[in-house]
Write a protein that binds this DNA or RNA. Structure first.
Lengths: 351, 351
DNA sequence: TTGTATGCGTTATCAA
DNA sequence: TTGATAACGCATACAA
C-alpha cells in the first residue's frame, strides 16, 4: 500500500537501483532480458517515479501557480478552465490562490509560490496591486516566467509580459452597435479612475462618441464602486431622473447591467424600446436575466490557454517573452437588451 | 537571483550546512553568536528553505488535490473558496483538476495526484464515477485521506468519508414552503435516475407531498438531462400544456429554474401569481433573474472549510475519519418566485 | 552490460 | 558547540 521505489524493485531482482532506473528508461546499454524482468516487477508493483524526487533532481516542479481576486466570477473561472486544459495537455498542474482583492495577499502568495518552486506564476491582479508596484517589482524573479493577466502594470526597471482582452476594441464595437441601432444618448456606468481597466473602457466610450459626433454628457458618466446589482439599480434610477435622460446605458460589468435592468423595470422603463443596456464580459448572467443582456465578450478560455502556451514557450524553448503584451479579440454579443427589432433567438456564443 | 541554499550560507560563514540548519531552527546546542551570524546572512540572502527538499525529506507535500466536474458552476467555486481559506490558514496549497464530468478523467486525476504526493485528495464526483466504482475502490489508498464531496459512493470493501449538503432536509423545507404559500399542485423537474443526488431530492419531494396529502401526479415529474436554460424553458411549456396543470415547479437546479421562468413568461403565465418556481443551490443566478428566484441554499463555503478541517484532523491528529459522513444544513431562501404576497426586499443570504 | 558514487536541499544521527 | 554523513528517491557520470 505504501509507494514502491526503485529500491524495492532492485531488491526484488537482486540488482541495483541504477540498473532498474536505466531499464525503465529503455537505455540501450541494458540487456533485453533485464529490461523485461525489471518492467515486469515494476508493473507488478505498479511503480511510479516519485514526482517530488524528480522535482528536486531536475529543479523543475511541473507546477504553475495562479493568483486571482475571486473565484466566483465567471470570467475568472473561464480563464482558469483554459489554463487547466492547456496545462494538462503539457503535463503541468495548477496551484491556486485567491487574493480577495487584497494587494498584500497577492504579494504574499507570489512569495509563497516562489518558495514552492513553481515553474511559472500567473496573476490576475487586483486594481490595488499597482499601489505596491515597487514591492512587486522587487519580488519578481527573472528566472521564472511571470505573466500578468487582464491588466497592464508598468515597472521602472523590469518588463513583464501581459495578456488581456481588447477592451478598447470591444467597447468601440459595442458603442457603435448602440449607435447603429439608433440610440443617441449613451450613458456609461464606469469603474474607478485608478483602474486602468476602467479607464480604457471609458476612453473607448468617449472616443467613439466624439468620432461619431454624439452627445457626450458628463451627467451620463457615473462612477461605480460596489459593482453589485443594488448599485446598478440605484444608478439607473438616478440616470432616469435626469432632465436630459440617456437612451442607452453602457455598464462596466454584467452584474451592474443586471442591476440597471432591474432599476429600469422599477422605473417603468422598457428595455430595449426606451433604453438599451449593454454589459461587459458576457458572463453567464447575460443569458439568464430578463431581457437577455447584450454584452461584450471577453475570451476567457482563450486567454487562459494562450497564457499557458506563452509561458511554455519560455520554459521549453527559452523564448524571451518579457516584452510580449498580448491582446485578445473581443466581440459584441447582441441579445435582447439592445435590439429594438426583436431577435428570433438568443445568441449563445461563448468560448 | 537564484535561490540561496544552506550551502551558500555555510560557505559565506565558513561553517557547515548542519550548523546553519540548526542555527536557523534555534536549536539549543548552537551558540548565540553563531545563531546571530547565521541569521544575519540568511536574512541578507533572504534564505527560504526549499519546499521540494522538505517534501522529499518528510514525505509530506503540504499540497491537497481537488477534482471537480466544472469550475464555472457557482456552487463549485463556493466550495473551492471555502477550501482555499481553510487550507491557507494551515499552510496548505491546493492543486486543482477539472474532470468535465468524465469518469475516466476523474480516475486519471486521482492517480496523478497520488503520484504528485499530495497529502489528501478531495473529489466532487460526476454522476458517472459510480460506473467505475470498482476501479475507483482499487485506486484509493488507505494512507492518504480521500474525501468525497456532495455525493455518496458505497464501496464493497472500503469505507470512504463524505460530506454533503442536506438535500433531503432542504427539499422538504422547500416543498413545505410551497405548500404553506398555498400552492397545491407541485411539479418537479428532476435529474437522472442513476444519480443519487437527483434521487434524494425526488424522494424528499415525494415524501413531503405524501405526508401532506398532496396530489402526486406522475405527469408532473419530468427528467432533465441537459440541465440548461433551454431545457427548463421547453419543459415548462410542456407542463403548462397539460390538461391538469401544476401551480408550482420545483427544479433540480437554478439554471433549469431560470429556463422555467423564461418558458412561463413565453406562455403568458405569471410568476408567482399563477405558478411558483423553486430552484436548487441558491447560485448567483437566483438574484439576477426576473422575478428573483427562491432557491434552496447549499452551504458551499462551509462545506469547503469543513472538508479541509476533516482532512487535517486525520493528517495532524491521526483521527480515523473513514466513517464520517457529514451532512451540512441547507436553507430555503425565499425570493419573489414563490411569494404571492410581494416581498419588500430581496433576501441576500449567502455564505 | 551492470555496479558505485554523486548530487539535488534538507534534517537528524553520530562523532568529535 | 560544531562537523561529517546518512537518508529521502531519482538520474547519471564514471568505474568495472
Amino acid at each position: 500500500m505504501t509507494k514502491t521505489t526503485l529500491k524495492d524493485i532492485a531488491k526484488a531482482l537482486n540488482t541495483t537501483i541504477a540498473t532498474v532506473s536505466r531499464a525503465l528508461h529503455d537505455k540501450p546499454e541494458i540487456s533485453d532480458s533485464m529490461k523485461n524482468r525489471v518492467k515486469e516487477v515494476a508493473n507488478l508493483y505498479s511503480y511510479k517515479p516519485n514526482a517530488t524526487a524528480l522535482s528536486l533532481k531536475f529543479q523543475k516542479s511541473y507546477r504553475i501557480g495562479v493568483i486571482f481576486p475571486k473565484l466566483s466570477h465567471y470570467y475568472v473561472t473561464q480563464i482558469l478552465s483554459g489554463m487547466l486544459i492547456e496545462a494538462g495537455k503539457n503535463g503541468y498542474k495548477m496551484l491556486i490562490a485567491e487574493s480577495n482583492y487584497n494587494q498584500f495577499k497577492e504579494l504574499e502568495y507570489i512569495k509563497e509560490f516562489y518558495e514552492l518552486n513553481v515553474d511559472a506564476i500567473l496573476i490576475l491582479p487586483s486594481r490595488k496591486l499597482s499601489l505596491v508596484k515597487d514591492k512587486l517589482e522587487n519580488l519578481i524573479r527573472d528566472d521564472i516566467p511571470f505573466l500578468i493577466i487582464d491588466r497592464i502594470i508598468k515597472f521602472d526597471q523590469k518588463t513583464v509580459p501581459s495578456i488581456a482582452s481588447d477592451d478598447y476594441g470591444g467597447t468601440t464595437e459595442g458603442i457603435k452597435h448602440l449607435i447603429d441601432n439608433g440610440y443617441k444618448k449613451i450613458a456609461h456606468l464606469r469603474g474607478e479612475e485608478s483602474s486602468t481597466l476602467a479607464n480604457v473602457r471609458y476612453y473607448a466610450y468617449r472616443d467613439c462618441l466624439l468620432k461619431n459626433n454624439m452627445e457626450l454628457n458628463p451627467d451620463w458618466v457615473i462612477l461605480c464602486n460596489k459593482f453589485n446589482k443594488a448599485e446598478g439599480e440605484a444608478l439607473a434610477i438616478r440616470l432616469m431622473s435626469l432632465e436630459n435622460r440617456p437612451d442607452a446605458i453602457f455598464c462596466i460589468s454584467d452584474v451592474v447591467a443586471v442591476g440597471v435592468l432591474s432599476g429600469l423595470k422599477k422605473a417603468g422603463i422598457r428595455v430595449p424600446e426606451d433604453v438599451a443596456v449593454l454589459g461587459f464580459s458576457n458572463s453567464d448572467l447575460a443569458e439568464v436575466c430578463y431581457p437577455t443582456l447584450s454584452s461584450i465578450h471577453q475570451p476567457g478560455v482563450a486567454i487562459g490557454k494562450k497564457s499557458i502556451r506563452l509561458l511554455l514557450s519560455n520554459i521549453n524553448m527559452k523564448k524571451n517573452i518579457s516584452r510580449e503584451n498580448i491582446v485578445m479579440k473581443t466581440k459584441v454579443i447582441v441579445r435582447e437588451s439592445t435590439s429594438r427589432i426583436a431577435l428570433s433567438g438568443t445568441n449563445s456564443f461563448r468560448t
